[in-house]
Design a protein around this nucleic acid. Structure first.
Length: 834
RNA sequence: GCCGGUGUGAUGGAAUGGUAGACGUGACGGACUCAAAAUCCGUUGGGCUAAUCCCCCGUGUGGGUUCGAGUCCCACCACCGGCACCA
């Protein structure tokens, strides 16, 4: 009998659609388990094969948890606001909401086809006004708590399209669409004070079960550093403060540098004899894009300020003051002390401008490069610090600064506040109005949702304003505070907004009184396990932790953190058709390298239409079935690492499932367990259960394959297949239910395989009666012996010494030592007999 | 440059410091078949060899620790990811 996967999968999906075995019940007395995957952006291209990897893994985890007796919530939704939809709408003159609706319908069809155990009744869509009403509500709470503020910030401005671009649209410093030059342009924008949460975002990581690289990346991104702010008196009586983490090098200061954007420069205009030169430099720096300023231009440039000098507060030395764009206005104080002896950037600057270099930590060669001394460098030329190590000198100088009133300890972060405005149409409107009398005023809650109005064209305007700015009827409104004329904010929120809190909405998706009810949040929160891509570590994951902490502070949620556990999956790549490894002849190889360069050296690359290596899940499912898709994408390799799709290897998963089904032809109608199979069955129950919870689905499937192989070798009974089918069920749910039914268990148990408890294993039965042991001589494998598992050491050694091959090794030798590792190896240490 | 990760057969990949290469793909041989596909059974790291006897070599490179190292330590090389003038 051949397995008709198409018919069987359809049959069971219809049954599940009707019976709803995946419904999550708020308040159920069983322990809860909240498994979460990152909801997809419903692009026009449909589901990518990358999606099923994390989705299937969490589907398997949640199925296992259900079998372990948990009340599981495994929800799905759509992160539906975003640029590609807007761009598609612009090009094709279709409203983004229509595009979104169609794309969601397609995604839903595909996700249902994959047989996931989602609770579809909890599906959310971030672009639905009933959803974004609460996104707006949360924003208003932030506004009311002073976390949202308006500031003038540079945006990416395409000089050829005359349009403001999102960071994602700037690739290698040019406009993604037209390739035009991108410069920075000042624009007043809404900001969120994520920096106010920087310490908590770092410190609270310690108590979370996140994979280490996520924690490290978040910590690096936030970039906390502890140093000292030191005040330098200026020759004109002003004072300039610098930030440094290396207070120990204060005696090595030979100049100072101020960022060209620093506001104090304007005050000094009258006393600077070379103001024209300064102003010209400022203008040039302002014109540069971030890309030019950073990536391209590491050559140091600058202008010495004529007419002002700085005094080193620790030794009274008078040093020149420069402006240079290597000093960033956005970090620290916008001024640095120049210590060319021990900072490479300062060294380069000093070499360029012929400034003196003073050694204050012994050991380097100042003529070649700066000596960036580590902790145990010895201080010289540094007054009271001479002879100290750097490790000792830093706190000593810190203390000195504080005691002499010239400085104070200071913590700085690389993290910047979050630019929350987009000059775009397809996003949540920001529910604020500007009144000349009252300033920025929040809409009343009863006015929410502030619905996105219909506009004629979604093109951004050529002055960089949002398309909404053109809608004067909508823009002009009355002030909620004084009733006078006022204007609405026309910028929208970034697409990260809706995803900051979606996991909360799943708990209570239809609530029209609150974002989430207290009852639902207290029952389901926090998310027990969240899996997602590494690319979201410093954006989505950090942003949503920030929002959650704010919601905690205002009493909306009861936990400090949204996600108790975070894991991450690797990407699915396609075969690189230009890979030299696929070339047959030497000439072909040369041609490939010549034509594609280093591209030709990589066997795997991201899937793309132009390379023709895109795999569409629809095609895979049509040809091999959903269960095969699921098993293959899990069997493909280590979950955390990138993997390359192989059409060939898919067949192995298909073959495995067919072999499972074909067991029905040879199964004996006997409910007892075959003695020869018992140990492996128990081992497999343990192995598969453990592996699932460690996301080692590849080895779990390998264990199931081994068991099936043994069933073919030893024969099997219905008693053997009963636990096997329940183990198979999380991986291949359709096939498992079909086998379960055909074996008669659906009738005898009165429930589906997926509704069974995870089988119990008996530790004592996982141990084989006899073990093969390796026998080493001086650490080299020489033979193997079979012994009873409970044999004592003496017996094991006697058996080993009696072995023929070992006897041969023993000739002329004497035994000096034996090492026995139970049921694994025996190592005999021999030496030449005298 | 800094931070993280990875290097294992033809190939995707397994291996709590304990028989390296589980499981799968591909290849080869056999059974079934008029034949092919599918299926089932077997072989498959390299060298030496008549031999699936022995022996030697083998987890990026070079050292080290250990009775024993893919695994731990030190130094290096290559590739991947993230950050990058953050004082």
């Amino acid at each position: 009998m051949k397995y008709d996967f198409a018919a069987v999968e359809k049959k069971w999906q219809d049954i599940w659609e009707e019976r709803k075995p995946y419904a999550a019940v708020t308040g159920d007395p069983r322990p809860k388990f909240y498994g979460l995957i990152e909801f997809p952006y419903p692009s026009g291209a449909g589901l990518h094969v990358g999606h099923p990897r994390p989705f299937t893994a969490m589907d398997i985890v949640t199925r296992k948890k259900r079998m372990d007796g948990y009340n599981v919530i495994f929800p799905i939704g759509y992160d539906a606001f975003g640029l590609p939809t807007e761009n598609y709408a612009i090009k094709n003159h279709i409203h983004p909401s229509v595009v979104t609706r169609d794309n969601i319908a397609n995604f839903t069809r595909q996700l249902k086809m994959l047989g996931y155990g989602f609770d579809w009744d909890r599906c959310v869509n971030t672009s639905d006004p009933n959803y974004y009403k609460w996104t707006q509500w949360i924003f208003l709470q932030m506004f009311k708590h002073g976390l949202a503020y308006k500031a003038t910030m540079p945006i990416n401005w395409c000089t050829s399209c005359k349009v403001g671009l999102a960071n994602e649209e700037v690739v290698d410093g040019v406009c993604e669409r037209c390739g035009g030059e991108v410069i920075r342009k000042e624009k007043s924008q809404w900001m969120l004070r994520i920096t106010q949460y920087a310490d908590r975002l770092i410190d609270d990581l310690d108590d979370l079960d996140y994979i280490e690289r996520v924690k490290i990346q978040q910590k690096n991104w936030i970039g906390r550093s502890t140093g000292v702010e030191v005040a330098f008196p200026m020759s004109n009586g002003d004072e300039i403060t610098v930030y440094t983490t290396r207070a120990d090098t204060l005696y090595g200061v030979t100049y100072m540098v101020i960022s060209p954007e620093h506001p104090i420069l304007e005050q000094w205009k009258p006393i600077l004899s070379n103001w024209d030169e300064v102003a010209a430099y400022q203008a040039a720096a302002a014109k540069k894009s971030d890309f030019e300023r950073g990536e391209l231009n590491k050559d140091k440039t600058g202008v010495c300020l004529q007419g002002i000098r700085a005094i080193n507060p620790v030794n009274g030395a008078s040093v020149p003051v420069f402006i240079s764009d290597y000093v960033l206005m956005g970090y620290g104080t916008g001024c640095v002390m120049g210590v060319p002896g021990h900072d490479q950037r300062d060294w380069e600057f000093a070499m360029k401008f012929g400034l003196p270099i003073i050694e204050v930590v012994k050991g380097g060669d100042m003529t070649k490069e700066a000596f960036v001394a580590k902790d145990d460098g010895i201080m010289v030329n540094s007054g009271f610090m001479d002879g100290m190590t750097v490790r000792e000198a830093i706190p000593a100088m810190k203390k000195y600064c504080v005691e002499h009133g010239i400085g104070k300890e200071k913590v700085n972060y690389k993290l910047r506040d979050w630019v929350f405005s987009r000059q775009r149409y397809w996003g949540e409107p920001i529910p604020l109005v500007f009144c000349d009398k009252c300033g920025w005023v929040a809409l009343d809650e009863s006015e929410l949702p502030l619905v996105l109005p219909n506009v004629e064209s979604y093109e951004p305007t050529d002055d960089g304003e949002s398309p909404l700015a053109k809608m004067t009827d909508w823009v002009n409104t009355t002030c909620p505070a004084c009733g006078g004329p006022a204007r609405r904010e026309t910028d929208t929120m970034p697409n990260w907004a809706g995803s900051c809190w979606y996991y909360l909405r799943y708990m209570d998706p239809n609530n029209d009184k609150a974002a989430v009810s207290k009852e639902a949040e207290e029952y389901w929160g926090p998310v027990d396990w969240y899996n997602g891509g590494m690319e979201h570590t410093t954006l989505h994951l950090l942003y949503s932790r920030f929002w959650h902490k704010f919601l905690y502070d205002i009493g909306v949620v009861h936990t400090k953190e949204p996600y108790a556990k975070r894991t991450s999956h690797g990407m699915i790549l396609g075969r690189n058709p230009h890979y030299v490894g696929y070339a047959e002849t030497e000439e072909e190889k040369q041609a490939l390298i010549e034509h594609y360069g280093s591209e030709a050296l990589r066997p795997s690359v991201k899937m793309s239409k132009s390379l023709g290596n895109v795999v569409n899940p629809d095609d895979v499912i049509r040809e091999y079935g959903t269960d095969t898709m699921r098993v293959y994408i899990m069997f493909i390799g280590d979950f955390e690492k990138t993997a390359t799709w192989s059409d060939e290897a898919v067949k192995g998963s298909k073959r495995f499932l067919d072999r499972c089904f074909n067991l029905l032809d040879l199964v004996k109608d006997d409910l007892s367990v075959t003695p020869e199979n018992e140990a492996l069955i128990h081992k497999t129950i343990k192995k598969v259960g453990d592996d699932i919870l460690e996301l080692k689905m590849n080895t779990a499937i390998a264990a199931l394959m081994s068991l099936v192989n043994q069933f073919y070798a030893n024969g099997c009974t219905k008693g053997d297949l009963k636990p096997f089918v329940t183990l198979l069920s999380p991986f291949a749910p359709h096939l498992a239910e079909e086998m379960w039914e055909q074996l008669g268990f659906a009738a005898s148990e009165g429930r589906m395989a997926m509704q069974m408890s995870w089988p119990e294993y008996d530790e004592s039965k996982t141990v084989d009666k006899k073990h093969e042991m390796a026998v080493q001589v001086n650490g080299k494998l020489r033979s193997t012996i079979v012994v009873d598992s409970d044999a004592d050491e003496e017996t094991v050694i006697r058996t080993a010494l009696a072995d023929e091959k070992i006897q041969r090794q023993m000739a002329g030798m004497e035994l000096v030592k034996t090492i026995v590792v139970k049921n694994r190896i025996i190592n005999l240490i021999l030496k030449k007999a005298n």
